[in-house]
């Protein structure tokens, strides 16, 4: 019973660069019909900061997962404003795979993502706020706990708070104790919140 793969995952080490590597040529290569050529172009464009907008545009259209992964890595390496805004826009995509890939990429950008995190956590779309909490999961930043506390104290959406509680169970300190108790009292009729807050409080008290 072989696992059916629908996408190619050829190692980049076996690929070959066949075209000129200046920025303009690479931008043209980004539209090549061959995924291998697009993948190489996306990788080499890391040295062309002005190409971030083109990479962001390509990301929305790209069907090949291996090319998307390289584009996301390149945008992460670039880490400029256009790249970060492009990644944020992926969170609004209807394509689940692209959203999740962007979340994973943004976790690697603590310094670039931190300044916009408050905005993401206050986004009008609760799904984007949930994805922002997902990004915090492995974002190495000293503000993570205080952002999560703010979420459970102020976010009106139950599932955003629930996602934040999951994470506070892992990263929370004694500072999270009172906010968790407040959330528990706010949602006495929601079994999951009762369960998750009890678990988080236990983990915090166990140290």
């Amino acid at each position: 019973m072989a696992l059916i793969k629908t996408q190619t995952h050829q190692p980049i080490a076996h690929d070959e660069r066949k075209q000129a590597r200046d920025c303009n040529s690479l931008l043209l290569e980004l539209e090549n019909d061959n995924p291998m050529a697009r993948r190489w172009a996306a990788r080499d464009l890391a040295d062309c900061p002005a190409a971030s907008a083109a990479l962001v545009s390509r990301l929305q259209l790209e069907d090949d997962v291996s090319v998307r992964e390289v584009i996301l890595t390149t945008l992460t390496v670039m880490g400029n404003e256009v790249a970060v805004v492009g990644l944020v826009n992926c969170l609004r995509s209807e394509k689940v795979a692209l959203r999740n890939e962007a979340i994973e990429a943004m976790k690697q950008l603590p310094d670039e993502v931190a300044p916009i995190m408050r905005g993401l956590l206050a986004d009008a779309d609760p799904d984007v706020r949930i994805f922002a909490v997902n990004i915090l999961e492995s974002l190495r930043h000293p503000e993570v706990e205080s952002w999560l506390i703010s979420v459970i104290d102020h976010d009106p959406e139950l599932n955003v708070c629930a996602t934040a509680v999951d994470l506070l169970g892992e990263v929370g300190s004694s500072a999270s104790r009172e906010p968790l108790l407040r959330l528990k009292a706010r949602y006495t009729q929601v079994p999951y919140i009762q369960f998750a807050t009890d678990l988080a409080l236990k983990r915090i008290s166990d140290g």
């Binding site: 689940v96 795979a97 959203r99 999740n100 979340i103 994973e104 994805f131 997902n134």
Partner: peptide, 11 residues
């Protein structure tokens, strides 16, 4: 679940 890394629920 739907939203998961590596391969989501739909996939």
């Amino acid at each position: 679940d739907i939203n998961m890394p590596k391969l989501d629920g739909y996939g």
